Computed example of a mutant assay.
Amino acid sequence: MKIIADLCIVPMGVGPSVSRYIRDVRDIIEASGLVHVMHANGTNIEGEMAAVTAVVEACCARLTELGVERVFCTLVFSTRTDKPQTMADKLAAIAD
């Protein structure tokens, strides 16, 4: 099933700046080959549900390897069964 997901992943207990951890998360998402767009509070990812959730699992595993003892994630996603839809399609639909 194709999904468009919004992932927010927060390493907890590592101090106020998490950018060094998020760089590793970004690298995993980029290496996945999935279409994605990073934004200020997370990352939009599109692809098959199994592939997207596998990437999220890989990100959490990497943070654990880096010594993060607690990870907070939100994963919100949508699907369309009546037609294929991409993130670009959704943005084009609201463009003036």
Results as ranks from 00 to 15, higher is better:
residue 16 P to D: 14
residue 82 D to P: 04
residue 51 A to Q: 07
residue 73 C to I: 14
residue 3 I to V: 15
residue 13 G to K: 06
residue 22 I to F: 12
residue 94 I to C: 00
residue 60 C to R: 13
residue 51 A to Y: 02
residue 96 D to Y: 05
residue 72 F to D: 14
residue 45 I to L: 07
residue 25 V to K: 01
residue 19 S to D: 13
residue 6 D to I: 00
residue 58 A to W: 03
residue 12 M to R: 12
residue 90 K to T: 00
residue 91 L to P: 00
residue 78 S to L: 11
residue 64 T to C: 14
residue 95 A to T: 03
residue 20 R to N: 14
residue 81 T to I: 11
residue 58 A to C: 07
residue 81 T to V: 12
residue 64 T to N: 13
residue 89 D to T: 00
residue 35 V to W: 06
residue 9 I to G: 01
residue 86 T to V: 04
residue 63 L to Y: 01
residue 62 R to L: 10
residue 78 S to G: 15
residue 70 R to N: 15
residue 25 V to L: 10
residue 71 V to N: 10
residue 61 A to K: 14
residue 72 F to M: 13
residue 24 D to E: 15
residue 42 G to T: 04
residue 51 A to E: 08
residue 92 A to K: 07
residue 33 G to M: 02
residue 5 A to S: 14
residue 50 A to Q: 09
residue 84 P to V: 06
residue 26 R to N: 14
residue 19 S to I: 11
residue 42 G to A: 01
residue 68 V to I: 11
residue 7 L to A: 02
residue 29 I to N: 04
residue 78 S to P: 00
residue 96 D to M: 03
residue 85 Q to W: 05
residue 85 Q to A: 11
residue 58 A to F: 08
residue 24 D to V: 09
residue 95 A to Q: 04
residue 42 G to P: 00
residue 20 R to T: 15
residue 8 C to P: 02
residue 41 N to H: 02
residue 56 V to F: 07
residue 87 M to D: 03
residue 62 R to I: 10
residue 59 C to Q: 09
residue 19 S to H: 05
residue 40 A to T: 01
residue 82 D to M: 04
residue 92 A to Y: 02
residue 80 R to N: 12
residue 25 V to N: 01
residue 50 A to R: 08
residue 2 K to G: 05
residue 8 C to G: 07
residue 17 S to N: 15
residue 38 M to G: 00
residue 87 M to N: 02
residue 49 M to D: 07
residue 83 K to M: 10
residue 4 I to R: 01
